[in-house]
Nucleic acid binder design. Structure first.
Length: 402
DNA sequence: TCTGGGGTCCTAGGACCC
DNA sequence: TCTGGGGTCCTAGGACCC
């Protein structure tokens, strides 16, 4: 039987910002106040990214608008995010855990799985160990975590979500029926809002209902997903803790525009800059992309996209941009656009280049050299040192890109 | 009134080939 | 005039997660 731990930082962004502010000499610990980490309203990104426990008690939820949060909690304090600092705190936590084992899967900036199976004979009882790391993280770094202990990843994750903060919970196979079955079906990992609604229409309210539901009826509604859903509801999950580096399947950047845009021509400078950014990220990882995808969101919040598969994978910002322009030309822009993005997919490490008869080898080599030089300059002097001519002197961007 | 940005995985339909 | 089906690849969109 495997033993898996899931470690989850309580109110990660808010806790980490609280520590940062205290270090700067701020007089309050925002964890104890009606506080949130929020986006910037002037940039049309005014949503709640994280909330304190007091704010949560007033009904503030993640991803709602700050406007709506304020209505629930008039004396709400809004603090900006600080991703660089968050990454530091995150790394520090994972470093502590790696003192005990390498078998750690980093799931997101504030969560990971730890396979305890092999090291149990060294460190003993897993619940005692869970308390030990929870206390160690708090003493050395100053923030609290929840730890879930179970026989697989799914149940460990469910367990860490039980009561917060600063708690250890178990959800062993033998406890699934008593601890997990009574929960609302929407609480199950992988069941979102839409699916939960659909399930309720056929009378499934709890995870237990789903676990015991007639599989034939379920299949009619959810096809192949029915079996997987029901296995999850029964707490079955054989996925391993993947502790080697998993390579990204794709990379993308998107940006909400300061104002809605009505013409394709106006979108082009943004595509240019986005192409540069995704290109830099791609080249940093020594990768090439086959698929370029342009994503738009209109003023009714409908996302749509078009993509193109290249004959030869590329890592050239210039080629990404040109392809993006071609894609944009094929897209309908019936409504004003509030967001534009570029995604690169089907990444590969090798540059297999079949020369098409239309391509000029010298031009490609020049392009590669140019990208390399630009990357080096940007690394040395910062991203702002070089601006593509058409972006110069235009304050188009509402925010700095990653 | 206002609604982010980064991802992953799955499905459905059409094109195309044999 | 009548006319299959299987497999694969590609694209667009949707659901979900943090």
């Amino acid at each position: 039987m495997r033993i898996i731990l899931h470690i989850d930082v309580n109110n990660a962004f808010l806790s980490w910002s609280a520590i940062y502010l205290l270090k700067q000499g701020y007089k309050y610990d925002i964890r104890n106040r009606y506080a949130i980490i929020g986006g910037d309203k002037s940039k049309r990104s005014g949503i709640v990214l994280a909330k304190s426990t007091p704010a949560k008690k007033r009904g503030v939820v993640t991803a709602e608008t700050i406007y709506s949060a304020r209505k629930k909690c008039p004396n709400l304090e809004v603090y900006p995010s600080n991703y660089q600092w968050y990454q530091k705190m995150s790394n520090a936590m994972f470093k502590i855990l790696k003192n005990y084992t390498d078998e750690i899967e980093i799931y997101s900036i504030d969560e990971c799985f730890l396979d305890y199976t092999k090291i149990k004979k060294i460190y003993g009882d897993e619940v005692k160990f869970a308390h030990k790391i929870k206390d160690e993280i708090y003493k050395t770094l100053g923030f609290t975590v929840n730890v879930g202990v179970a026989n697989n990843k799914l149940c460990a994750k469910m367990a860490s979500d039980f009561e917060k903060p600063f708690k250890v919970h178990t959800l062993y196979d033998s406890e699934i029926k008593t601890k997990m079955y009574p929960l609302d079906v929407g609480e199950l990992f992988g069941i979102g809002k839409k699916t939960a609604e659909k399930l309720r229409t056929i009378g499934i309210k709890t995870i237990g209902d789903l676990a015991n539901f007639d599989i034939n009826r379920l299949t009619k509604l959810f096809k192949n997903q029915a079996v997987i859903m029901q296995e999850k509801a029964r707490g079955i999950d054989n996925s391993p803790v993947i502790y080697w580096n998993i390579e990204a399947k794709g990379i993308g950047n998107e940006i909400t525009l300061k104002n809605d845009i009505y013409t394709k021509e106006e979108l082009k400078p943004f595509l240019l800059s986005l192409s540069e950014h995704v290109g830099i990220r791609l080249r940093k990882e020594n990768k090439y992309a086959y698929v370029i995808c342009v994503v738009l969101k209109d003023n009714l919040f409908r996302r749509f996209s078009h993509q193109k598969k290249l004959l030869n994978p590329t890592n050239s910002s210039n080629e990404i941009y040109k392809t993006a322009i071609n894609i944009l030309d094929e897209m309908n822009m019936d409504n004003p656009i509030r967001l534009v993005g570029i995604r690169l997919d089907k990444l590969t490490t090798s540059e297999v280049r079949q020369m098409s008869i239309f391509e000029n080898e010298n031009r490609i080599i020049e392009d590669t050299k140019l990208n390399k030089t630009l990357d080096e300059l940007k690394d040395k002097y910062g991203t702002n040192v070089i601006k593509v001519a058409s972006l110069k002197d235009k304050n188009l961007f509402k925010k700095k890109l990653k």
